[in-house]
Design a binder for these strands. Structure first.
Lengths: 193, 193
DNA sequence: GAAAACATGTAACCGGTTACATGATTCT
DNA sequence: AGAATCATGTAACCGGTTACATGTTTTC
């Protein structure tokens, strides 16, 4: 149900089409939650049929049209209710650490490559997340700017602070993963010397 | 395919039944990779049909019997091949951080509860992972003891070191998550004062 | 005129979860 | 005798991935 609530959270800002939402998933929210268009369109239909959002056909060019979705009061209630419900944590399932536990079965060079990729992966995420923090600091995030327009000024602080808090958490996670893999590289070197 | 390889990794130690494997998933490996019995039994059947393992019916009591699986050479080759293949990283999908980004929508007390549960969740994992490290240090892990018996003494170091490395990574992750959620609690307090 | 972007889906598949179902053995 | 453990599955469902499919509009 997280996709559904990620969509609701975006629609609290302004009405959007499936494609608009897909684009936001590709950029901002996508750094916390990924969803392909093939998942977004059917989910929007379901949400409309359940009354969480309403769709309006909007003319687009001469012949084209697109469907713009607006969140309903039920949708807002649903989102708030999700936000107030404690999260169920899934059992651990971590391929990178599973493989790491048996790295003595890999060729040393493959083991090193594994660690290098782990570093590269989290460095790329680190960069993206750091960029989002920079955007928050400089006020250059357009989704946030739109959101603040419909937010009472007294709540601006909280709105920005929680996003910053989120990305800071992801940044420190990425940093920890990079450090871990670097220790892994040293370990592989030590074992093969 | 990680379940399959987790099963193969365990079967490199000794032949086991589905139930044996299920028990190991409930204890040791389960702290890195979780799998329910309803997933293990069918997967073992598939693996047998693909020649990665062979099953032998073993008498159990008077009337009962159980099926014990032995890894084949193809199974060992498959596992090594997986170990030498770089991991594909899945796109980010992180419910806890997704929710954190919109915590201004939650009631302050629900937000605090969220953070407290995050702390409790990772403290419980931290304890489990720390226990595994203690076991490695004291040599009281029976799966590892069995594994070492069939491992050349010169490779003992690597076998233990990679497991320790894995759990240390998980421990620092858990510590980072706890610190993050504690900052979250402080932030909620600050915003509501 | 062509390419890029906008727009919206369907279908097959895959891994994982939850619930259901059954029966034997061993321990106390 | 009863409880706990050992033992092995099936079935419905759910969320997500990948591939396929199509057409319009805007930009260069």
């Amino acid at each position: 149900m997280s996709l559904r609530n990620a969509l609701l959270s975006l629609l609290t800002v302004e009405p959007m089409t499936g494609y608009d939402l897909y684009k936001v998933f590709e950029s901002s929210v996508g750094h916390v939650w990924h969803a392909p268009d093939s998942q977004i369109y059917p989910e929007l239909k379901r949400m409309e049929s359940e009354g969480l959002i309403t769709g309006q056909d909007v003319q687009w060019g001469q012949r084209g049209k697109k469907r713009q979705y607006t969140i309903t009061n039920e949708g807002i209630a649903e989102f708030k209710s999700w936000m107030n419900t404690p999260l169920e944590y899934a059992r651990t399932r971590d391929p990178a650490h599973l493989k790491a536990a048996y790295l003595e079965w890999a060729d040393p060079e493959a083991a090193r490559e594994q660690m290098r990729r782990h570093i590269a992966h989290y460095q790329s995420l680190l960069k993206q997340w750091q960029e989002r923090i920079d955007e928050l600091e400089q006020g250059t995030n357009s989704m946030l700017a739109k959101r603040l327009k419909s937010t009472p000024r007294k709540d601006w602080d909280a709105t920005i602070a929680f996003k910053r808090f989120t990305y800071e958490g992801l940044v420190s996670r990425a940093e920890a993963e990079i450090q871990w893999a670097e220790r892994g590289l040293q370990l592989i070197d030590r074992l093969n010397s």
